[in-house]
Write a protein that binds this DNA or RNA. Structure first.
Length: 649
RNA sequence: GCGCCCGUAGCUCAGCCUGGAUAGAGCGUUUGCCUCCGAAGCAAAAGGCCACAAGUUCGAAUCUUGUCGGGCGCACCA
C-alpha cells in the first residue's frame, strides 16, 4: 500500500512543479527519521533552489500555498530549512490497506537463477549454504513480485575435484567400483562425509608426494573420455554426492528445476559450437608466442577496463582441452538460447511436494521435460572471488555480439563465509600463532577445514528440540521434532541472510546457534503469537468480524488517531515497498531486516494492546483486523525468506 | 605491482547506490516487568571524532581524491 501512495504523491508533485515552474525534476520522497515530521518528506525545494535562485524555504512555502490538494493527504507543512512534510489521511490510508488486494501481476520474460554449484566430491559446508540460501531467497523474492524463475544448479561432475576423490578411491584406498557401490548403499557414515575426509587425505597425499599428482591427470583424462572403469566410478561418486547435496538443501527448503551437468556440455559438443562462434567473431585468437604459446586466448582488453593489463586469459590449453571459462561461456550462451543446440533431459528425482527435478543427458529420448534455458535475464550466484572469471564470461557474450544479453547476465556475488579462530578451536583445528591473530580463517574443502551443513543443522535441531521439549512435553514426539526442524531452518536461513552480500561472514557457533534477538526464531515467535490470538478466538467459537463493512473510513480514522497504532499500521503496510527495493538492489538482507522489524512491531502491538480482552467493540474489531494483517504480513515475509511458521514453539 | 571488498557503540552488523532534520539494531553489561492473548518476549540506562586527511556542497557516515589498516583475487585449477 505504501508503495502505491508514495508513487501517487511523487507524480502529482512533479506534474505541479512542471506546470508552475516549467521545470522537469524527479521528485524523490523520503521517510523522515522522526514520526513527528509526518509520514513522508519532500525535499524537492532544495533541488529547485539551485535552478530558481531562491531560498529553499521560500520555495517550499510557495509550493504548499499553490499546490492543489493531494489524494489521501491530510496536510502539507514547511519544516526545517525547506522540507515539505506530508501527513497522510489516516482513515483513507487504512481503508486503502483494507481494500487493496495483495496480488502480483505476471511479468513477462523468464529469469534463470543459477546457484549452489557445489563440486560433487564432498559434503556441503557453510560456505555452500550461504550461496544456496542467498540464491533461493532471491528466487523467492523474484517470484513474489510476479517473475517466472527457473532454478539451475550446475554440476561440475568432470572436474579436478571429482577426479581427486576418484583417484583417492582407486589408488589410496584400492577400492573397486563394487566396493564404492556398497559404501553408498550401506554406509557406516554418510557417503558425502566419507568423501570429505578422503578428499582431504588425497589432497594431502598429493602435497606430500608430488610425483603422485600424475594420478589426477590420468583420472581426469579417463573421466573426460567418458568410458571405462574410472569414468564409471566418477559417474557413480558424483551422482551419489549430488543426491546428498540435493537432500541437504531440501532440509533448508531449497529446490531446483534442473541440474545441467558438465559431462553433457562435453559430450554434446556445446564447447565445440561455442568455439566456432568465438573464432568466427575473432573474440579469441591463437597465441603464437610468449608464455601462452599454442593456446587460444581472449585478450585482456575484452574483459578488463584496466588499460595497463596485458594478461590475456587462456580459453583453450595448448594440449587442446578447454578451460572452465570456455565451458562456462558455452553454458551461458545456452542459458540465453543463443547456442543453437539443447541438452536432452531425464528425470532426476521428484520432490515430496511433487515438483520434478530434471537433469541433462546426452541420449536422445522422448521424456516430456519442460523447456529449459531461453532466459531473458540470468543471475549467477557465485562468490566474489570468481568475479574475474565472471567478467571473462560476460566479455565472451559481448564479443560475440550479444551486448544485450551481456548486460542481462548478472554476477550475483557475495563474500565468503570464514571461521572465527574461536570456532576453529572448538572444532579441534590446530592454528598457527599467525592464524590466531587473524580476524577469520578461510574454510577449505581441500584441507577438510570447515563446518558441514548437515552437522550444523543437526546441532541446531538438537538445541531447538531441547527448548521445545521443555515447553511442550505433552505434544507428540514427531510434532516436536517437526517444530524443532522448522526452528533450526529458520535460525540458519536468517543467519545466512542477515548480513549484506558484500560482508564476509565470520562464522561463530555461539552466534549461529542463538534463538534470541535478531534471529529467525524471534520472527517465527511473533508469527506464532499472532496466529495464537486468532486461534484462541476461533476456539471460543467466535467468528471473525466482517471487517469490510465494520471498518469504515471514519472508524479507521478514529482508531488510527492513536499514534502507536498508526505507526504500526504504517510499518506493516510497507512490505511492498521493501521487497521491490530489495529486488532492485539484489539484497535479500533487506527483506530479512524488514521481517525482523515487522516482528518487533508486532511484539510492541502485542504488549501494548491486549486484543481479546478489549471492551470497546469498535476498537476490538480494529485490533482483530490488525492482528490478522500482522499475521498475514509476517507469514508472507517469512515465506519469501524460506522460513516456516511452526504450529507452536 | 594492478583490481575488487571491508573499516560506524566493548563485539557482530544496518545505514552509503539516490547527500538533508537528534547516526540505528542485535549481542554483551546494568535495572525493571510473568494472577494479565506464551518471558524464545517487553520497557529503560550506559555506550560513537562514522579509520585518517583534503576536496565538492548551503549541508558529507553517505559523493571525489589521497593515506593508513584488514581481507580476497590477478593459472594452460575451478
Amino acid at each position: 500500500m505504501f508503495h502505491f501512495v508514495e508513487q501517487l504523491i511523487a507524480s502529482r508533485v512533479a506534474e505541479f512543479i512542471h506546470a508552475r515552474y516549467g521545470v522537469e525534476i524527479p521528485v524523490n520522497l523520503e521517510q523522515p527519521k522522526q514520526s513527528a515530521f509526518g509520514e513522508l518528506a519532500i525535499p524537492v525545494a532544495f533541488q529547485l533552489a539551485r535552478q530558481l535562485r531562491l531560498a529553499p524555504k521560500a520555495i517550499a512555502a510557495q509550493l504548499i500555498e499553490a499546490m492543489p490538494s493531494l489524494p489521501g493527504v491530510a496536510s502539507l507543512e514547511v519544516a526545517g530549512n525547506g522540507f515539505i512534510n506530508v501527513r497522510l489521511d489516516r482513515g483513507a490510508y487504512g481503508a486503502g490497506v483494507l481494500a487493496l488486494p495483495e496480488s502480483a501481476e505476471k511479468l513477462a520474460g523468464k529469469i534463470v537463477v543459477e546457484h549452489t554449484n557445489i563440486n560433487p566430491n564432498k559434503a556441503a559446508h557453510i560456505g555452500h549454504m550461504r550461496n544456496a540460501v542467498l540464491g533461493d531467497t532471491f528466487v523467492r523474492m523474484l517470484r513474489s513480485i510476479g517473475h517466472a524463475v527457473e532454478v539451475q544448479n550446475y554440476i561440475d561432475n568432470t572436474g579436478v575435484q571429482v577426479a581427486d576423490v576418484v583417484a583417492g578411491f582407486e589408488h589410496l584406498e584400492q577400492r573397486s567400483i563394487e566396493d564404492v557401490r556398497k559404501l553408498i548403499l550401506h554406509p557406516e557414515q554418510p557417503f558425502d562425509y566419507l568423501c570429505w575426509d578422503l578428499y582431504a587425505r588425497t589432497s594431502l597425499h598429493f602435497k606430500e608426494h608430488p610425483e603422485t599428482v600424475a594420478w589426477r591427470h590420468e583420472t581426469l583424462q579417463a573421466i573426460e573420455a567418458g568410458t571405462g572403469n574410472t569414468a564409471d566410478l566418477a559417474h557413480l561418486v558424483a551422482g551419489a554426492i549430488v543426491r546428498a547435496h540435493v537432500k541437504t538443501m531440501l532440509r533448508l527448503g531449497i529446490q531446483y528445476d534442473v541440474l545441467p551437468r558438465e559431462s553433457e556440455i562435453l559430450h554434446l559438443q556445446f564447447w565445440a559450437t561455442a568455439f566456432e562462434q568465438l573464432k568466427q567473431k575473432q573474440a579469441i585468437y591463437f597465441e603464437t608466442e610468449g608464455k601462452n604459446k599454442g593456446c587460444w586466448v581472449m585478450p585482456a582488453s575484452a574483459f578488463s577496463t584496466n588499460t595497463g593489463d596485458e594478461d590475456s586469459k587462456v580459453i583453450v590449453r595448448s594440449n587442446g582441452t578447454v578451460t572452465y571459462v570456455g565451458k562456462d561461456i558455452a553454458y551461458q550462451l545456452w542459458k540465453f538460447g543463443l547456442l543453437g543446440k539443447d541438452f536432452y533431459y531425464q528425470l532426476w528425482d521428484t520432490y515430496p511436494d511433487a515438483h520434478a527435478l530434471w537433469t541433462t543427458t546426452d541420449a536422445p529420448n522422448t521424456n516430456h521435460a519442460p523447456e529449459f534455458g531461453r532466459a531473458a535475464r540470468v543471475y549467477n550466484v557465485i562468490d566474489s572471488r570468481q568475479s574475474y572469471l565472471q567478467d571473462v564470461v560476460v566479455a565472451g557474450l559481448r564479443a560475440l555480439g550479444y551486448a544485450d544479453q551481456a548486460e542481462r547476465s548478472i554476477h550475483f556475488s557475495y563474500e565468503m563465509v570464514a571461521l572465527t579462530p574461536r570456532t576453529c578451536v572448538e572444532l579441534g583445528i590446530e592454528l598457527s600463532e599467525e592464524d590466531k591473530r587473524r580476524p577469520y580463517i578461510e574454510v577449505s574443502g581441500r584441507k577438510g577445514l570447515g563446518v558441514k551443513a548437515d552437522d550444523l543443522l543437526d546441532r541446531l535441531i538438537e538445541k531447538a528440540l531441547a527448548e521445545v521439549n521443555s515447553r511442550h512435553p505433552e505434544a507428540p514426539a514427531g510434532e516436536r521434532l517437526q517444530v524443532a526442524s522448522q526452528l533450526a531452518t529458520g535460525a540458519l536461513r536468517y543467519f545466512m541472510l542477515k548480513f549484506t552480500r558484500n560482508s564476509v561472514i565470520a562464522f561463530d557457533f555461539q552466534e549461529a546457534l542463538s534463538f534470541e534477538g535478531e534471529t529467525g526464531p524471534y520472527v517465527q515467535y511473533a508469527a506464532v503469537r499472532a496466529r495464537n490470538i486468532l486461534r484462541k478466538l476461533a476456539g471460543r467459537g467466535e467468528a471473525m468480524p466482517d471487517f469490510k463493512t465494520l471498518l469504515t473510513r471514519e472508524s479507521l480514522g478514529r482508531q488510527l488517531a492513536n499514534e502507536g497504532l498508526w505507526q504500526l499500521l504504517l510499518a506493516v503496510s510497507k512490505a511492498d515497498t521493501i521487497i521491490r527495493n530489495a529486488v532492485q538492489s539484489g539484497e535479500p538482507a533487506h527483506v530479512a531486516k524488514y521481517a525482523f522489524q515487522l516482528a518487533q512491531a508486532f511484539n510492541v502491538f502485542y504488549h501494548d494492546f491486549p486484543v481479546l480482552t478489549e471492551e470497546d467493540p469498535e476498537k476490538r474489531t480494529f485490533l482483530l483486523w490488525m492482528t490478522g494483517y500482522f499475521q498475514a504480513q509476517l507469514a508472507g515475509t517469512l515465506q519469501i525468506l524460506g522460513i516456516d511458521v511452526p504450529v507452536y514453539m
